[in-house]
Structures are given as structure tokens and as C-alpha cells.
Computed example of a mutant assay.
Amino acid sequence: MVRQGQIRPARAVAGRGLIAALVLLPVAASRGTLGALRERWGTVAILAVVHIVVPFLLITYGEVHITSSLTGLLIAVEPVVIALLMSRAEPLTRGRVAGLVLGFAGVAVLVGLDVSGDRLGLLGAGMVLLAAVSYGVATIFVQRRTADIPPETLAGGTTAITTLVLTPFAILTWPAAPVHADAWLALAALGVFCTAVALLAFYRLVALAGSNRAGLVTYVNPVVAVLLGVLLLNEPLRWGTVAGFALVVAGCWLSTRPAPVRPEVTEPVPVG
């Protein structure tokens, strides 16, 4: 439930997009790469909808009804979605399947499984799960359709389009009560670090490593969150946390190992 003084989901996503676009577009302009948007605006618009507008809104609304730990676990389905969608181009080996299972188990150990929520908890979980599927589709789309667009231009274009799409909805949900300063500061941090910097790094990662490897970032996210909690907030480091780390590392290693090359069998050449 959104309380008074807080930023509603549509405004939060539009605000994140606006802040990220204001950070990224000047960078693209200084590098002379903005021209790519004029030539590929339709493709960039599709990516903006699939990678930002739809999943960001689904997660923001879904988290109103479920816990953050369940949200993290459901989003971790993304690498599995990518692996299934890419199974023709990159067949699923036993090692990759084992890696995906181990990584998901590691996330489950790290974030726990708290299924508590309000009476719309099932709907919230479904929203977050659909967001994970949308993320998976978007990751493959980046690799196949937009890998040639510079990351700062692609990230700036998608966030700018997100802002344009959601601004009318943000205006319609303008709150009557003033928004707390802490909420604005949190939105600024989300826009700069969790949107601008994150998208810039992610699009670059997809171009360099491919969608299957890039999708594994959803397994690493909880590891980073727990490490920051231990280092910055003095949270305890438990044995379950160490076990979760080990499972995630093992899963990522197995999932990214190259498939073994089978030696070619040559027919013996008859003599005489």
C-alpha cells in the first residue's frame, strides 16, 4: 500500500527514467553517438517498453503486495527464461542446467523465502514473475537487435522514451500530500545508480558476453546486496550466507563454461 508522502509507482518509474536520461544523453552527445537514435528509434522504443516500462511497473506494483525477498527470488528466474528461449542457438547441456539450478538455489538461500503479503500477494507475485520474463526477452533482444548501438546512446534513448511514455500517468497520479525529502533522495539514487549506471553497464555486458552470461547478473544481485549489508550496515555474516555465496558462484561457473567440443569421427579410408 502506498502511503501519503510517498512516490507512486508510475511517478517513480518516470522519475527514474528522467534522471537517467538527463545523465546519459549528454554523455552520448559528447561522444557524438546520438545520431544512432534517429536511425533506430523504433527498435530503441521497443526495447524501452520491454526492458524498462513493463518490468519496472510490474515490479513496482508487485512489491506493494509481496516481500522484497520473494521479489528477489522471482526475478532470479530470468536466466532460466533466457536459457529456454536461446536453447536452439545454445543447447542446454547438463552442466548449464546444473549451473542454473545451483544459482537459483543460492539466491533462495540468500534472500530466504518469505511468502507473506496482503490479500493480493498472488497477483503481486505474478506481476514480478512476468517482469522476469520481460527482462529475459529484452536481454535477448539487446544481443540480437541493438548490440551495435553504443551503450550510452541505447541507455539514454530507452530511458528518455520511458519518461515520455509514463509522464502522462505520472501527472494523473500526482499526490495531494507533499512527498518526503527522503523519498526524493531515494528516487535520485535510483535514477543515477540503479538506472543510468546499471543500464550502461548491462548493455555493455550483453554486447561483450552475450545474453546467457549477462542474464546471470540476477544471481549476483543478492550477493552484492548481502555483502553491502555486512560491510556497511554491520549485518552478521551467517553460515547460510556463505553457503548461498558458494552456490551462486558454483552455478555461475557451471552456466558459463563452454560446451565440450566433441571430436569429429572420421571414416577410415579403405586401402587398395
Rank of each mutant, 00 (worst) to 15 (best):
A177T: 12
P151F: 01
D148W: 10
A147H: 11
A160L: 15
A147F: 02
L164T: 09
A177N: 11
T163C: 13
L172A: 15
Q143A: 13
D182G: 07
F169Y: 14
A160W: 04
D148F: 12
T158R: 04
I149G: 02
G156E: 04
H180R: 14
L172H: 11
P168W: 14
T167P: 03
D182K: 12
I149Q: 06
I149T: 09
D148T: 14
I161H: 01
P178Q: 08
T162N: 12
L166E: 01
V142H: 03
W184E: 04
V142D: 05
T158G: 07
W184I: 10
G156S: 13
A176Q: 15
F169L: 15
T153W: 00
I149V: 15
A176P: 07
P168Y: 12
P178W: 03
R144E: 15
P175K: 00
L154A: 05
T162K: 00
L172M: 15
F169D: 05
D182T: 15
T153D: 02
V179K: 00
A155Y: 04
W184C: 05
W184T: 09
V142T: 11
P151I: 00
G156W: 02
R144S: 11
I171W: 09
P178R: 08
E152G: 04
I149K: 01
W174Y: 13
W174T: 13
H180N: 10
A183C: 10
A170D: 07
A181K: 01
L185G: 11
Q143H: 08
V165F: 13
T162Y: 08
W184V: 11
L154P: 00
R145Q: 14
A155G: 08
L154I: 07
A170I: 14
P150R: 05
T163L: 13
A181F: 08
L154V: 04
L185Y: 10
V142C: 05
A183R: 09
D148R: 14
A176C: 10
T153P: 06
E152P: 06
A170G: 13
D148V: 08
V165L: 15
A176D: 14
A155F: 09
A160F: 13
Q143D: 13
T153G: 10
L166N: 01
